[in-house]
Amino acid sequence: AQVHVDGVTYDFDNPEEAEKFAREMAKRKGGTVEVKNDQWHVE
């Protein structure tokens, strides 16, 4: 699973880890999390 944050792509073998990371980053940035094509996007 991939997580996109500020133009940087992070690869995770485990989708749950990807989701956890995406939500944590969004919380830190005060942003939102979107899922597109099985990829997490932190805005």
Rank of each mutant, 00 (worst) to 15 (best):
residue 26 A to V: 05
residue 23 R to A: 06
residue 1 A to M: 13
residue 27 K to E: 12
residue 1 A to G: 08
residue 38 D to A: 11
residue 27 K to L: 12
residue 23 R to E: 06
residue 21 F to P: 00
residue 34 E to M: 14
residue 20 K to Q: 11
residue 18 A to M: 01
residue 41 H to R: 11
residue 35 V to F: 15
residue 36 K to C: 15
residue 39 Q to M: 13
residue 36 K to Q: 11
residue 43 E to M: 15
residue 33 V to Q: 04
residue 39 Q to D: 06
residue 42 V to E: 04
residue 9 T to Q: 08
residue 26 A to H: 03
residue 9 T to I: 14
residue 5 V to Q: 01
residue 3 V to M: 02
residue 2 Q to P: 02
residue 39 Q to N: 08
residue 5 V to E: 01
residue 38 D to V: 04
residue 1 A to H: 14
residue 18 A to F: 01
residue 21 F to V: 01
residue 14 N to V: 05
residue 26 A to I: 05
residue 15 P to V: 12
residue 22 A to W: 04
residue 4 H to T: 13
residue 4 H to D: 04
residue 26 A to Q: 06
residue 15 P to M: 12
residue 27 K to R: 12
residue 9 T to F: 06
residue 31 G to V: 11
residue 15 P to N: 12
residue 43 E to V: 15
residue 22 A to E: 02
residue 28 R to E: 11
residue 13 D to V: 10
residue 9 T to G: 01
residue 2 Q to I: 09
residue 36 K to D: 08
residue 34 E to I: 15
residue 33 V to G: 03
residue 2 Q to R: 14
residue 24 E to H: 06
residue 28 R to H: 09
residue 25 M to A: 05
residue 3 V to N: 01
residue 12 F to K: 00
residue 15 P to L: 10
residue 18 A to W: 02
residue 15 P to E: 10
residue 15 P to T: 09
residue 42 V to I: 09
residue 3 V to D: 01
residue 16 E to I: 11
residue 25 M to Q: 07
residue 4 H to N: 07
residue 36 K to T: 10
residue 4 H to P: 01
residue 10 Y to R: 01
residue 39 Q to W: 05
residue 7 G to W: 03
residue 17 E to Y: 03
residue 10 Y to D: 00
residue 41 H to T: 13
residue 43 E to Q: 14
residue 30 G to E: 06
residue 12 F to H: 00
residue 1 A to F: 15
residue 6 D to G: 10
residue 13 D to R: 07
residue 5 V to L: 09
residue 42 V to D: 03
residue 16 E to A: 12
residue 33 V to K: 03
residue 35 V to S: 08
residue 34 E to N: 13
residue 12 F to Q: 00
residue 32 T to N: 07
residue 38 D to S: 12
residue 20 K to W: 11
residue 33 V to P: 04
residue 10 Y to T: 01
residue 23 R to D: 04
residue 12 F to D: 00
residue 25 M to V: 09
residue 42 V to N: 04
residue 16 E to V: 11
residue 27 K to N: 10
residue 9 T to Y: 07
residue 14 N to P: 00
residue 28 R to W: 11
residue 18 A to D: 01
residue 32 T to D: 05
residue 19 E to R: 06
residue 17 E to F: 03
residue 36 K to P: 03
residue 22 A to G: 00
residue 7 G to V: 01
residue 24 E to M: 12
residue 5 V to D: 02
residue 22 A to N: 01
residue 16 E to W: 13
residue 41 H to N: 06
residue 8 V to P: 00
residue 35 V to H: 13
residue 17 E to W: 04
residue 14 N to S: 14
residue 39 Q to R: 09
residue 25 M to H: 03
residue 16 E to D: 11
residue 14 N to W: 05
residue 15 P to H: 12
residue 11 D to Q: 14
residue 30 G to S: 06
residue 14 N to K: 07
residue 32 T to V: 11
residue 19 E to Q: 05
residue 11 D to P: 07
residue 8 V to C: 15
residue 19 E to A: 08
residue 8 V to L: 10
residue 5 V to H: 06
residue 27 K to A: 14
residue 6 D to R: 05
residue 6 D to K: 04
residue 1 A to V: 13
residue 24 E to P: 00
residue 16 E to L: 10
residue 41 H to D: 04
residue 11 D to I: 14
residue 29 K to W: 14
residue 7 G to L: 02
residue 37 N to D: 12
residue 43 E to R: 15
residue 14 N to Q: 05
residue 23 R to W: 12
residue 39 Q to L: 08
residue 15 P to K: 12
residue 9 T to M: 08
residue 9 T to K: 07
residue 10 Y to F: 09
residue 25 M to P: 00
residue 36 K to H: 13
residue 25 M to K: 01
residue 10 Y to N: 00
residue 42 V to R: 05
residue 30 G to K: 07
residue 25 M to F: 05
residue 32 T to W: 15
residue 30 G to Y: 07
residue 15 P to W: 13
residue 38 D to C: 15
residue 40 W to V: 05
residue 3 V to Q: 01
residue 38 D to H: 13
residue 18 A to V: 01
residue 25 M to N: 02
residue 41 H to F: 15
residue 37 N to L: 09
residue 32 T to K: 12
residue 17 E to G: 02
residue 34 E to W: 15
residue 1 A to R: 13
residue 20 K to L: 10
residue 18 A to P: 00
residue 35 V to L: 14
residue 10 Y to L: 03
residue 19 E to S: 03
residue 5 V to P: 01
residue 41 H to S: 08
residue 1 A to L: 14
residue 28 R to A: 12
residue 37 N to C: 15
residue 19 E to F: 07
residue 13 D to I: 10
residue 29 K to I: 15
residue 3 V to W: 02
residue 10 Y to G: 00
residue 40 W to M: 06
residue 32 T to M: 09
residue 27 K to I: 12
residue 21 F to S: 00
residue 42 V to H: 04
